[in-house]
Design a protein around this nucleic acid. Structure first.
Lengths: 138, 138
DNA sequence: TCATACCCAAGTGTTTATGTCAAGATTTGT
DNA sequence: ACAAATCTTGACATAAACACTTGGGTATGA
C-alpha cells in the first residue's frame, strides 16, 4: 500500500500555509524551497487545492497563496482527497470493469471496506490545527 | 492510496484454501480458476505464502496446496505483509535516503504514522475464520 | 514410466507516478 | 512601464512498479 507523493507534498504545502494563517501571501517558489517540493510540480498540485477551496491565490507582484480557512477547519482528508482522487476507496477493478461474478466468494470486499473506513476515520480526524500544535510542541 | 492486486489475489487464494481447511490439497490451477487469478502469476505469489509458512505444498501428482494453520490463526495482515513487502509502513523516502533535514517541519510524519497504525490494526483484526463466517452467512 | 503438479529464474510489456519543460496570458504592486 | 507573480495547458521524459509469460527443472502417485 502506498501513498503518492502528491498527497505528501500537498500536506506539506498546506501545512506551510496553515502556519502562516492570516499572514501575507507566500509565493510558490518560497513554499517549494521551504518544503523541498519541485516547483513546477507543486504548481500543478496547488491549482487543485485552490479549486477545492483549500487555498486562496493572489496574483501579481507580492502575490502568492494563503490558506482559505482556519487551520482547524481543514483536515488531512480534505487535502488528500483533493489531490489523490480516490484515496481511501480501494476498489475491485474487476468488479468495476466486468461486474464481479464471484462477489459471494470475494474475501476481499470485507477487508478493503474495513481498511477504507479506518483510514478515512484516521485522516478525517487530523486537522491542520493539530499539526501545528504538534509542530510547536517540538 | 492503493492496494496491489498481489494482496488481493493473495487474500483470495488463501481464502480458497482456508475454506478447504483439513481437506485434500488444491492445485494452483484449480485455485486460479475458482478465484480467477492468472495461474503463473499466482504461482509466484503462492511461493511467498509458502515461505512465510501460511500455506503448505505437496508436490507431484495429486499435489497442491493446503493452508498451514487454522483459519482463525491467520490474519489478513499476515497475507498482505507477506506479499506486499511494505504495506502499511508509509515511509518518507526522503528521510530514508538523505536524512530528512526538515523533520521538525514535516507535517506528514504525524499523519502517516496514524494512518499506518489504523490500517494495521484493521487488518490484524481480521482472520480467515472471520472471512469464512462472513461468507457462510450470505 | 509417465502424467501431474510444484519449483525456480528470468524476461517482457504496460501502466502509473513523478516529474520537466515550454510558451505564453493575465494580474497587480511599485 | 515594469517586474513579479499567478494562471493555463499541453507535451514530453523517465523510472519504477506491476502484472504477467516463458521455459525450463524436479518430485510424486498411480
Amino acid at each position: 500500500m502506498r501513498v503518492s507523493t502528491r498527497a505528501r507534498y500537498g500536506i506539506n504545502a498546506v501545512f506551510e500555509l496553515a502556519k502562516n494563517y492570516q499572514g501575507e501571501p507566500i509565493a510558490i517558489k518560497t513554499i517549494s524551497e521551504r518544503q523541498k517540493i519541485p516547483m513546477q510540480y507543486l504548481e500543478q498540485l496547488i491549482v487543485k487545492l485552490r479549486k477545492a477551496g483549500i487555498v486562496n491565490s493572489l496574483r501579481g507582484a507580492k502575490g502568492g497563496y494563503t490558506i482559505a480557512k482556519k487551520p482547524k477547519d481543514i483536515t488531512a482528508w480534505d487535502v488528500i482527497a483533493c489531490l489523490e482522487g480516490a484515496f481511501a476507496p480501494i476498489h475491485c477493478k474487476r468488479y468495476e470493469e466486468e461486474g464481479c461474478d464471484h462477489e459471494d466468494d470475494c474475501a476481499g470486499q470485507h477487508i478493503w471496506t474495513k481498511v477504507n473506513s479506518s483510514v478515512m476515520q484516521a485522516v478525517e480526524n487530523i486537522t491542520f490545527a493539530d499539526l501545528i500544535k504538534e509542530f510547536k510542541e517540538k
